[in-house]
Amino acid sequence: MALLDTYGLTATYGDFQALFGVDITLGEAETIAIIGANGAGKTTLMRSISGVLRNAPGMVQFNGRDIGALAADEIMAQGVAMVPEGRKLFPSLSVEENLLIGTYGRRVSGHWSLGSVYDLFPILKDRRHSPGTALSGGQQQMVAIGRALMSNPRVLLCDEISLGLAPVVIKDIYKAVPAIKAAGASLIVVEQDIGQAMAVADRVYCMMEGRVTLTGAPDALSRDAIHDAYFGAGQ
């Protein structure tokens, strides 16, 4: 049985429908990537799974439980943590406080703690008393990832962790993924960078206009199929 599934997930902003029946499945110890153009609905999907957008009952199953209608704080407490798009550090909190608050709703002992997060991203230890927002973009992304890891989640949702970062910084950040997997989390990674998505994921979902248009293992997908799924056939 999969660890996390969505069943015909829909989402709306007022009158605007952003998701039209999305089905994805995430296995234990698996990493999936969600790719798609701007506005495809990737962030909306992450916000729906994490409960920031409320769903109907039955639309999301996690660990054998229906979490479709739960609030974000309840879903987090079950073990689904999110690294939100744009990092969203708390400006009033120092780096270390940003990390510590990641355990507020879920205190589970496991691999991740302040010490192991500092081992993963040593630069954060030197900057631990700085305001979170005084760091560079890459360092802020490290804080956002560390903050989500602090609760020892079963599922980690990463929304465009490479956004706006230099290639060498992106490489540094993705170096953390094997350690995150080794500690027992499954990942859903939203990426605009298709190469990065292909490199990290066991399976890829491509979205367009609120629907999944293509899915498969990275090496089974041709460039043309991805191009069509990304931009629509005939573009």
Partner: peptide
């Protein structure tokens, strides 16, 4: 600072 992101912290 941000109630929505706070809810993601539980």
């Amino acid at each position: 600072d941000d109630p929505v992101t706070a809810s993601l912290m539980g």
